[in-house]
Design a protein around this nucleic acid. Structure first.
Lengths: 224, 224
DNA sequence: GTTTTCACCGACCGATCGGTCAAGCCCGGC
DNA sequence: GCCGGGCTTGACCGATCGGTCGGTGAAAAC
């Protein structure tokens, strides 16, 4: 199921592409990620690759296509990548695997990930942007299915499913803003920690029954 | 506490500014938020305001200053805004108030918020960002203090404090990517829901019946 | 009544943008 | 030999970029 693993320097899913094309995609992804789409010129990309600007137009028809190959081509198989890493077992563990797999994808295709989630995300008139959003919808709906599964199995509370999905995805999607690859924790470890926090909650103590009758302010005490 | 509330159209903390300047800041914020800093030209801003491009340079020295007034000027008092809305009471409720207050700030200064968290966040020329980042650090450290407080009070588990802060902030910081002001839930309600999910966890409580033959869930429980 | 101040504008600047094009370079097949 | 065809280039294009300049008109200050 991982025949899609033709990759180089974090450029995902670019089968049958020449070394030069892969180089361009890698450099362009890095630049898009750090300076944005509008902030990156074709001259920047050419300079980073050590080639002439014209050569970019030999391999790609325009700037949008480079971005599409970086971003769309990279989110292309996120859904499949994650789906294939969901084990059989209790639904809650599937959610955990979902988070860890997404984090692994982030780690492997980091620049392309950042580029695709950063650049002109709300430009309404970009045709291929819609394709990417469709893929992300499928990805998100997959997560919602897992959450519903966990609810049906009685593993998690009867929470609002879309909102729960947004919380989980938020914890992963914001990671690129603070994640430092030189620090010790891997994205997978971070995702695992976040799953623990979200699934088990932060609250200490065994679940004694709810202080339901109590107004929130007066609540819990256990002075230090 | 709210002497900082000179605002118009979601432009925060722009005291003693003329109507025209406020208009420019509002329109520029909206454009920066939707098209990014590099993607927004001075002509765009002038056109949106119905004025000439020259007039922008009469009121501001350059494009960066407009961005600074929108973004830096808006995150300027986020820390104070939130701090003043933290009630006395149990630390966990302070964390909840922190989240709700941040969400309120997001709702009130939405465009400026998006512009400041979107545009060239990792520009190598961090100088103009340093001030803004310093403020955000203070903001984040404030949250970490609340988390530590809750741990010391025994209200929440002995979790990793910075990581917990990142989870909480992620849930809020990613909101602008999916929040729809036309839908029913307010940002404050969303933040409240997220607090409940993170604090109490998703896992169903003891009262859930144990399906007799069901194998246990692979030992994810963390004992404290 | 004169001068100063200030919001405002149209024309313009050099630089850079995305993109084009005709021509060279290189290398395997005749 | 020399012939095609893919890789590569520098010169160039119109458009647009951020920013400047000289000036206008009306109110405020003297």
């Amino acid at each position: 199921m991982t025949e899609l693993s033709t990759m180089k320097d974090g450029v995902a899913n670019q089968a049958e592409a020449s070394d030069r094309v892969l180089q361009i995609l890698a450099e362009a992804g890095r630049l898009f990620a750090s300076k944005g789409f509008e902030g990156t010129s074709m001259r920047d990309i050419a300079l980073a690759c050590g080639i002439s600007k014209s050569l970019l137009y030999h391999h790609f028809s325009n700037k949008d296509e480079i971005y599409a190959r970086v971003a769309v081509g990279s989110t292309l198989e996120l859904y499949l990548f994650v789906r294939d890493r969901i084990p059989d077992g209790p639904p809650s563990q599937k959610i955990r695997a979902f988070m860890v797999a997404t984090a692994e994808y982030f780690r492997r295709y980091r620049w392309a990930w950042i580029a695709s989630t950063t650049a002109f995300w709300n430009d309404p008139d970009r045709q291929r942007h819609k394709e990417r959003l469709t893929r992300r919808d499928r990805f998100e709906n997959f997560l919602r299915g897992l959450i519903q599964e966990a609810i049906d199995a009685g593993e998690i509370r009867k929470v609002d499913v879309p909102m729960t999905g947004r919380l989980i995805l938020s914890s992963l999607n914001w990671m690129h803003r603070w994640y430092n690859p030189n620090k010790s924790a891997t994205p997978e470890q971070i995702a695992d920690t976040f799953f623990d926090m979200i699934f088990n909650g932060l609250r200490s103590g065994e679940l004694v029954e709810l202080p339901a009758a109590e107004p929130p302010k007066a609540g819990r005490r256990k002075s230090r």
